[in-house]
């Protein structure tokens, strides 16, 4: 039952007959579902972890600053940054610092 409650909270799904007015999905729950599905669509069998990305983030940022096509050269890093908001936030700050120094 607890598991079910968790999921109900996640997407606020409630058992209703299909035709009832309560069947309408609130926009924020719909957005969360879309967010989950967008993440699933971008999920790869093999992905780098945050630590693996952190290990080469400085190199990746400098390559990007030089105008190199990092999404082609280091696609797994790019994929992780697309998936992980924490790493993406750190990448963007480091990018700003490197750009300001050039």
């Amino acid at each position: 039952m607890k598991f079910k409650q968790i999921i109900q909270r996640l997407f606020a799904f409630k058992k209703q007959s299909p035709a009832s007015p309560q069947n309408k999905i609130p926009a924020d729950k719909s957005e969360k579902m879309q967010k989950v599905m967008a993440m699933l669509a971008n999920t790869q069998e093999v992905e780098l972890t945050c630590d693996e990305v952190f290990a080469v983030l400085d190199q990746f940022v400098e390559m990007a600053a030089r105008g190199e096509d990092v999404s082609q050269l280091m696609p797994l890093i790019q994929q992780h940054l697309d998936m992980c908001e924490d790493c993406r936030e750190e990448y963007k700050i480091l990018e700003s610092i490197v750009q300001s120094a050039t």
């Binding site: 983030l57 400085d58 940022v61 400098e62 750190e90 480091l94 610092i97 490197v98 120094a101």
Partner: peptide
């Protein structure tokens, strides 16, 4: 990378 980029990271 540049040492300073590594330190900034």
């Amino acid at each position: 990378s540049q040492f300073t980029t590594w330190a900034h990271k």
